[in-house]
Amino acid sequence: MSSLLPLVRNETMKVWKKKRFFVVILVLLVLIPVFTYAQMKIALNNRDKFDDWRLQLQQKITDYQNQLSSERIPEEWKQYRRIAVQQLQYYLDHDVNPDSPNAVTFSRGFVEAAITMFIPLLVLAVASDLVSGERSTGTIKMLLTRPVRRWKILLSKLIALTLYVSLTLLATVVLSYLIAGIFFGYGGWTLPVFTGFVIHGSDVDSSAVHAVPQWFYLFMVTGLSWLSAMTIACLALMVSVLVRSTAASIVTMMAAIIAGSILTNMASSWHTAKYIFSVNLDLTNYLAGSPPPIEGMSLLFSVCVLAVWAVAAIIVSFSVFTKQDMLN
């Protein structure tokens, strides 16, 4: 009966007035300068040591190769190194600096680094108390006794959440670009970035490699981060429906995400772990051509796993929320 738009407006307004998004912006405003400063230190350091980035790259390749001949380094690490060496060599052969310091490279790197933990954390700041917050304060009683079907209320919350997830990513990219630009200059949009490395065991097949302008690469990275972030958002919404307290809801989600990132680093021999959502969050990894945490994972595989988790979370959220007895 009543249309969805006013409901979405309500939910958006509530998140805004709760100042959750301000917290997100504030965290970004504090952290980005910290990382920018660290990045600048590295750049200055490199400039002191090397006159030419090619020398620096060459040095890095030599370092990796030395590590490969060391006996104390585990085989798994060596595999990463071998692949990295081949990729760096590719950049060197094509005379492209993969680490050229500029604002766009920084934004790209920041989003890539933030996709597994930092962005999910920011998403949780908005998502975790969408439903549980209304239950713990009791406002759910007012909300659900209005003549609106429950599924519409939850859908409006989901739409508002999608909006804030998108805004969070946009803010991450824009703020990191603006802040990094102060130190590194605002260029770097058209810099070529190589993508399409195909990994077979420890060999890199570079036949499909092509250069894309960095702005396009940043766009892809942001898009993939959005997929990861939306999966987290859907799961957080589900937990928020199932759990009455906001604290419990945040802790549950954080535990799942952190467990995933730990597993990513140690589970290469446990193959079924690849179906866990939090092991699949690092989608940008595939673009850069890094080896997957567990063999058999690919971009398509990870996107599918995330989609299945997100859809399941939405189904659970809606079926529980529409039938649940609101006892308090």
Binding site: M1, S2, P6, L7, R9, N10, M13, K14, K17, K18, K19, T137, G138, T139, K141, M142, L143, R146, P147, V148
Partner: peptide, 20 residues
Amino acid sequence: EMYSYLTGWENLEHFARMQE
């Protein structure tokens, strides 16, 4: 129990939007 972070008027607007 109303939304404590909203004003009284904003609360009423919120619930008004839920009904035609």
